[in-house]
Each structure stands twice: as C-alpha cells, then as structure tokens.
Design a protein around this nucleic acid. Sequence first.
DNA 1: CTGAAAGCGCTTACAG
DNA 2: CTGAAAGCGCTTACAG
Lengths: 347, 347
Amino acid sequence: MALKKRILIHDIARHLEVSIATVSLVLNGKAQESRISAALAQRVLSYVEEVGYKPNQLAKSLRTGKTHTIGLVVEDITNPFFAAVAGLIERKILAQGYRILYCSTNNDPVKTRDQLALFEEQHVDGYILALPGGVEAEIQALVRRGKPLVLFDRSLPGIQANTVVVDGAAGMYAGTQHLLAQGFRSVALVTLQTSQAHMVARRQGYSQALQEQYLPELVLEIDYEQAPEAIIERMQAFFQEHATCDAVLFTTNYLGVHGLEALRNLNRRIPEQLAVVCFDDNDLFRLYSPPITVVAQPLEALTESVISTLLTALTGSGEFSPPTQLQLAPNLVVRQSTIHPLRAGSS
Amino acid sequence: MALKKRILIHDIARHLEVSIATVSLVLNGKAQESRISAALAQRVLSYVEEVGYKPNQLAKSLRTGKTHTIGLVVEDITNPFFAAVAGLIERKILAQGYRILYCSTNNDPVKTRDQLALFEEQHVDGYILALPGGVEAEIQALVRRGKPLVLFDRSLPGIQANTVVVDGAAGMYAGTQHLLAQGFRSVALVTLQTSQAHMVARRQGYSQALQEQYLPELVLEIDYEQAPEAIIERMQAFFQEHATCDAVLFTTNYLGVHGLEALRNLNRRIPEQLAVVCFDDNDLFRLYSPPITVVAQPLEALTESVISTLLTALTGSGEFSPPTQLQLAPNLVVRQSTIHPLRAGSS
DNA sequence: CTGAAAGCGCTTACAG
DNA sequence: CTGAAAGCGCTTACAG
C-alpha cells in the first residue's frame, strides 16, 4: 500500500556517495568531457538502471528549454490523408524520442492561432504544419525566432520556410490530360472555394490542360464550411445542370467521396455517363465499383522528407540556413472510372 | 530584428509596482480569497492582456504537477475508427484547455509500455487508452496511484478502471441473428487471433446466435501481425475452401475492407453468393456496391462518455470513487449486402 | 572528479 | 494586500 516515493537525482547521488553533478553529467553523456572515469560512469548507469530512475522531464525542460515534443497541426485528423500522415510521422519520429501533440484546424484560422499559442506555451521543440490561410503573421514570427518547423501539403504565401508539398499542378494536369486522351471532352472540376496554395495549384493544372486543347473550363467551388449533406446536394444540382459534362475531377479525397455519393444518388454510371478522377487515394477509391482513377500522393516520401527536414532543423547548429523547399511528384493511378468502354484509345 | 525578450511575471509585477505574489494570485483566480481588491485585480488583468503575457507552462507544471496534457493511446491512428475517435475527443477536450499527446500501439505491448513510460515522464494529467494485452501491470500501477484514466473500446482483464466500451457481443449477436432471419444458414466469422476483450465479446455474440439455432460455427482467425496481402490471401483460401458458406461477419473494419478485396478477387457476388456484415461502419461500407450491412458503433456517445468520465476523474476531489464502467449499445444498420433477393423474408 | 550554488519561472504558505 | 523566501527537480559553470 505504501506509495513508493518517486526517486530523485539526489537519492542516486547520495546512495552512490557521489555528487549530484556527477550523476547528471553521466546521465547526459558528458562523462568523458568532464573526465569522469569510465568505471564511475558505469557504476552510476547501472545503479540508475537498477532502481529505474527517470529524470523529471518537466524540470529538465524548464532548465534546458527542450521538451522533446513536436506539434503536429493538420486540417482534420479524421481525413484519411492526414490520418495516414500522422501515422507515418508518428512511426518515424517516436523512435527519435519525440512525442507528438496534435490538433486539427478544420481550416479555421482562429482555432489554429489558439492551438499554435497552446503549443508554444507548451514549448514544443518543433512544428509540422498543414495550415489554413490567415495565420501568416504567426508563422512568420515563428520562423523569425528560428523555431524548427516544416510546412507540408500546402505552403503559405509569402512565407520562406521549410516546405514539403506534392506537385498538385502536375498531378491534376496529368489527370486532366488522361481524361482528354480517353476522349472525354467536357471535363469539370470540383474544388474548394479557397485561396490555399495547394488548391490553387491543383486547379491550375486542370486549367492548363484544358487551355492547351482550347477546351472550356467548368468549375464548381464548394464551401468548406458546409455540412456533407449540403455539399452532396450542391454537387447533384451541378451535375444535373451540366448534363453534357462527361468527366469530372475532384481536388480532395473527401470531395471525391461526397461526389461518389452524389453521383450514386443521381444514378449516373461511371464511366459510361461520367468519368471520375480524384486527387488523393484511399481504400474507398480502390475498392469502389468501378475503381476510381486517382492522383496518388507519395505518402511515404512526403513524411520521410518532412521528418528529415525537421530533424535537421531540430539538431541544427542554430545558425541560419536557407529553408528546404521540396515538391514531390504525385502518381497517376489509372483505374476503370476513366476507361470508357466505347471510347477507349480513341483519342 | 531585436528579439523581443520574453516577458516574465516579474516584469509584470515591477511595472505595476505590486508584488509577484499578487500577480500570480490574480492570474490564478485567487484574488478574492486573498482579499485582493477587485480594482487591483482588474489592473493586473488588463495589463497582462495588454502586453500579452503568458505564464511559462513548464515552470507552472513543475511547480503544480499539472500539465493540462492528456495521453491518447490508440491501436492505429490510421484506422478510421480510431481516427474518428481522436477527432471527436480532440474537439471535446481542447475546449477544456487540454492538449493531446497521442500514439499508436499497433497492438504491440512493448511499444505500448515504452509510450506509456514516455507519457508518464511527460507528466500527462490523464490517459485515454485502447490497449493491447500485456500491459496489465502498468495500468494497474497507474490506477493504484490514482492517475485519471479511462479505457475505451476494450477493457483489460482483471483491471478495475473507468471503462467505456461498445457491447460487441450484443452487436454481433444482432448481426448474426439478422443473417439467420434472412435465411442464411452457413454463417462464417472472420476475426483476429487475440484474447483481447472486445474481440472475445464479438465472437461470443456470433457463437451464441448460432448455438441457439443449433448451427455450426465456422471461424477464421487472422494474425494481426500479417501484411494486408497475406491477410487477403488467407481469406481467399478460406472462402474457397468453404464454398458452401453463404454469409460472413467481420469483427473489425479493416478485416472487412480486406475481406471485400478478397471477395472481389474471387468474383463472389454479394449478397447472392455471400452475404456480408461488418462490425464498425465507414465510408467504404456505406458507398460500396452493394452497400454493406454493419454493426455501427455510437462514436458520438462513446467519445462523450470517455471525455466526461475523464474530466470527472481529472477534476475529482482526489478521494477514491468506484470506477465508471459503461457499455454502449451498437446499432445494426441493414444494407443490401445481407438482403438476398430470392430469400428475403423467407425466414 | 567534487561540492556548493545559481538559475530555469513559476506558486504558495507565512509573517507582517 | 505586500515582500521575502522556499521549493518544484533538474543542469551547468565554477572554484577547488
């Protein structure tokens, strides 16, 4: 029943009849440079191991300013893309002894600002960020103060910071070209009504492909704030209004999911009546009937780049170095949703 | 260019010409009980607001022992169920001023132990846990030391702790009964090879429904460690071997997803050749062709219960109170994957 | 190698 | 209400 009193560095020192400094130096790997004998260091280490002493991280953090904590900010942890990113980041960074604080922004700059402030109060060592617009000033301040951070998925206009993004323009260009090559001629885009960099790029890839063929654009912009039901209804109205449209690209996975539901409600056959491409892959697209052609993001490479960039900044010499800016190539995965049985190869 | 020096409580006190204690007491809402005049308190508050002073949480935590951080341990953050739980928990608890540290266990007790130790070093105030078997001793120790925690999704054998689970036995019983009522007679179960409480319960619900009808069980146990490809192959072999089986229930969403892929590879028609039920819902099941009948978990109620239980423990008087043990009812959602066109209503 | 000491930035009795 | 002080548990020069 007796609560074991938490053991302190002081207890270790007293038991070994050495000074607190000695214990601390050994524990922090500074035995050599402090000219502590290997034998003594070993004695300390094995006793610490024996009694299971763990330094109080709070005290350590207060003293050193390091918390070994990373703040992960995503748009929405329930979105399969961000969940996958979170999972991969976790796997890669926990092994380095870091912990992860996370939060979802839901693209709300006010909420994001609050959360960034909380992370800062908590003294996170570094940040991994997929941000909404409207927090440029806060991020600029972090950059200026030399905080290790990396933006991913989307960059922030006017901010010079480590960034790892997927080339949305190239991806959507490839997707649109693929549709055109399959003989589709009235190609719509369903995207978000936003000026965020990644969405702008994806739309631009679509536009460019159409312009090169002198084909008109047909764009539906969805308000992120809306409830799923409203989004689905909006899409249904759009597809009914534009009945001659024979192909559509969705710029995010959840727009794609809602789009499939809208098309199912309308009984549109894919790809006979409407070909479908989505940016970003997931189980649903892969197993849907018909399987959906996607512009897949390189999740493994993306997270690997994010982590290595962050670790470099974290362990950096502290001196200024130019930000790393990476743009990764997505991968067009052609499935049946864009292979028109009658038109295939007719381009 | 000049780095603004971080402002300290000392600076506030000096500027207002009051004592540090006064500032601290006002900031911690103890102005009244310390008989500090409302006017002075107001002066402090507005100056603090004006200069944007934020107390250093590390120092505060070291002193008070509270970090306002919750440790969330899930099986796998990329699993839609756990991602949904994480999202809802986040939404409900960030508003209370708590931050969330998370980690995935992948059902590995060693990894789980390491992470729990990290969380403890970090002095999290409370825990929300979906655990693998093999960490009973660690949890028992947390409980004994009065740490606020709540187990969810699955209980831990022999551990008396706050627990919020979904009634898997009732859910699978209902799903199996539904299949029998639809006229299916050779009903298989695909589950995990594990002794975890939630899986045992789900299997037991299946067994009971069959036993009541004197029907034989047909169970495939999958090893969690295997790669998806291996799991799919294993399932294909199973379904080929048991060709007369006319219905199947999957006990988790990812087993269901892999199962659908296996059945697609085998060109089995659902429900004509095989009816399908899955425990846990997601977009894929809802939009699949045909839509899949599921035993849906009450996510909103589940997370609400988890949070309120944890907050009670967190703000509790510290005195012992018996653990809260909640079991929520799941909801059978019948879709076309179990409605046999020829047999419907024939039961 | 050691020991005493300062300091990270707070909170909180305590005496006045 | 105030002021001085202890203390949360560490790390790290510094003099010896």
